[in-house]
């Protein structure tokens, strides 16, 4: 069994077919979109913060694309609530790969990290650290 099938273990297929927290929030604290032009993956991440303005309360996502990008976004919406924005920014691609629970081939890393990068950039725009229109992973 090579990487292809390994990459599509049940968890990823489950999150792809039955995405969690899929849709848009009515009252997000911030929202941001991103794309992975080579695959044509698009992701919008909506984040609502708790009253402390720092702790993530709820996350939703929408978009479409390959199974890796969509499953990663779905998993992220379950992972982020309870984390602070600082903890969100501290996440890297290995955290995302751990969450997916499979090896991701080098050509597909950009699919895996899209949602994470969108959430991070969205938070940075919210706190005034950066000014960008959309996030791209290539």
């Amino acid at each position: 069994m090579g990487m292809g099938s390994d990459m599509y273990r049940q968890q990823i297929l489950d999150h792809y077919k039955n995405p969690r927290n899929h849709g848009e929030l009515e009252d997000p604290t911030f929202t941001h979109t991103g794309e992975n032009p080579t695959c044509g993956d698009t992701i919008q991440v909506d984040v609502r913060l708790e009253d402390d303005g720092d702790t993530i309360e709820y996350v939703a996502f929408s978009g479409d694309g390959c199974a890796i990008s969509q499953a990663a976004a779905s998993l992220l919406t379950e992972e982020l609530p309870g984390k602070t924005l600082e903890e969100l920014q501290a996440m890297d691609r290995d955290d995302m790969i751990d969450m997916l629970g499979v090896d991701i081939s080098p050509m597909r890393i950009k699919c895996a990290v899209l949602a994470e990068k969108v959430a991070q950039d969205g938070a940075k725009i919210h706190t005034g650290e950066i000014e960008i229109e959309t996030t791209k992973t290539e």
């Binding site: 069994m1 990487m3 292809g4 990459m7 599509y8 695959c39 890796i68 081939s105």
Partner: peptide, 21 residues
Amino acid sequence: VHAHDLSSILNDSGIAIRAGD
């Protein structure tokens, strides 16, 4: 089935195709 997912799965059978635009 997204074309990139398809290509990843086909690679498991040794099949090299292109996926993209």
